[in-house]
Each structure stands twice: as C-alpha cells, then as structure tokens.
C-alpha cells in the first residue's frame, strides 16, 4: 500500500530526480530490512525489469511517434506509411525534446515497478492474504496468486538456471530465455494451483465472518507510516521525506502487512 502511494506520488510529481532518489532510498531500506527469505530477491529483479522498460520505452519513443518541434539531434531513415495514417511515422527526425520525454516516461515506469518489487521483497504475499477481509474473497485469491507468482518466479528461475547450467547450457540471450520460460511457467502455475487448492480445502472464504487468532497491536510508528502514505498522494515531496524517515525508524516490517489491514 505504502509502495502504491509512493508510486502514485512519483507519477504525479513527474520528476526524474525525485523518482531516482526514492528508488535509491527504497533500495537502502530493502537492503537493511529484508529477511533472508525466498522472496527477498524480488527487488533486484524488479530493478532489472525496470532497466529493460527504460530501454524499450526510449527505443520505441525514438522509432515511432508524432512529429514534434525541437532541436534536431540526428535523423534516421523514415519508413513511408499510407496516407490514411497521418500524424504517425516510423523513423525520421529525432529531436532532443522527444528523447528526453521518452526517457523521462521510461524512468517513471521503471521507478514504479521497482517500488512494487521492493514491497514484494519486504513482505510475503501470504501475509497480505491473511489480512484481506472476506468481502473481497474471490478478488483476494486472484491477487494473491498473482502477487505470489513474482517471488516464486524468482526462486524457481534461480533453481532452473542452476540446473540448466549443469546441463551445459549457456542461459544468456533469447535462446536462454526460451529454455528458462517453459519449466518456469509450469512450476509457477503448479504452485499457485496447489496453494489455491489448499486454501479451498481449508475453508477459505466459506464462512462470511472470520475470527482473529491474535489481534495486531498498533504503535506510533505505524500510524505515522499510514498517514505518510495518504499524504504521499497529496504532497509527493513532503510525504516521501516523512515516509522514508518513518520506515527507517520502524524496526519491524510487520508494518506493511498491517497497513494493508487498515486500508482494507
């Protein structure tokens, strides 16, 4: 939730500097607070995905787009398109403004992905599920299966890469990805189905009401964090500062799970 709020804040503030700063701070938090758990590496992976996003966004931004005014950097050959597609072109003049704008968008997207990855690496998706109320049961199951896929993909891809390296495969490049993808998806799907079946068998969502084994206690730090998250949407700059201070000060990462409860 906190990650979501900060992400919205970044998107609203639309500033590259702020986005990069936030990702930096979050990276420090992840480094200091993360457990040695299977899902802890999600952040690194989300960073990698983020870099790809920047690259692809910039590339397509250069290649395809509406002609815009500005200082011309260089020109790439333009592919003629039929006349019924006015305003769109492939190739052509690349202006500095357009390059900056696309890179800017790419960094924004990458920052948001990195933040969500950080949230995934700090709290297990299973914990999130427990906090969800029954009202959103069907939705909750779907969300958990979806969110648990990323950390699981990370764990199983490490295992599969290792196994395939032993088969003498070099897993770099496109071919490597194809060889990784098949067992990976199979594995993730099987696990998610197993989890869903286990939850079903244990009566999840069957009773409209749920009892709590142990009430969660609230402390000042957790309140500050929640307030900061709400403020983050409204005042990006201010909130990021407060939120970061709060998160660093809070010794337990229970917070994230609890916040979900609040919002829910």
């Amino acid at each position: 939730m906190w990650a979501g709020a900060i992400a919205i804040g970044i998107a609203k503030a639309s500033s590259v500097l702020l986005a990069l700063l936030t990702v930096g701070v979050v990276a420090i938090v992840v480094r200091t607070k993360s457990e040695n758990a299977p899902w802890a590496r999600s952040f690194q992976w989300s960073l990698k995905i983020g870099i790809w996003v920047i690259a692809i966004r910039t590339f397509t931004g250069i290649l395809i787009g509406v002609p815009s005014a500005g200082r011309t950097l260089f020109t790439i050959p333009q592919i003629p398109l039929p006349t019924w597609m006015p305003g769109i072109r492939i190739g052509g003049v690349v202006t500095a403004e357009r390059l900056i704008a696309t890179a800017h968008d790419g960094i924004m997207l990458a920052a948001i992905i990195a933040l969500l990855g950080a949230a995934a690496s700090l709290a297990s998706p299973h914990r999130l599920l427990r906090s969800l109320p029954v009202m959103v049961y069907e939705f909750g199951v779907a969300v958990v299966i979806a969110t648990s896929v990323l950390p699981q993909l990370v764990t199983s891809s490490a295992r599969i890469r290792e196994a395939q390296r032993l088969r003498g495969q070099n897993n770099r490049g496109l071919q490597g990805w194809r060889r990784l993808a098949l067992p990976l998806l199979e594995d993730a799907l099987a696990r998610s189905l197993d989890l869903a079946a286990a939850m079903d068998a244990r009566g999840y969502g069957f009773s409209r009401k749920r009892s709590k084994y142990r009430a969660n206690s609230w402390r000042i730090a957790e309140y500050i964090l929640c307030v900061s998250a709400v403020v983050a949407v409204l005042y990006p700059f201010l909130a990021v500062a407060i939120a970061v201070i709060a998160l660093v000060a809070v010794p337990s990462q229970k917070v994230i799970a609890q916040e979900v409860e609040v919002i829910a």
Partner: peptide
C-alpha cells in the same frame, strides 16, 4: 506449496480463522 502463512503458529490458526 500449501502453506498460506509464514509462521508455524499462524499457519495452525489459519484454518480456524476462516471458519
């Protein structure tokens, strides 16, 4: 693959909570 929570005690309680 079937565990829903992370801590032993919470896992034991999970089924009862849902009921």
């Amino acid at each position: 693959n079937g565990f829903v929570t992370d801590i032993v005690e919470e896992e034991l309680a999970f089924g009862m909570e849902t009921l």
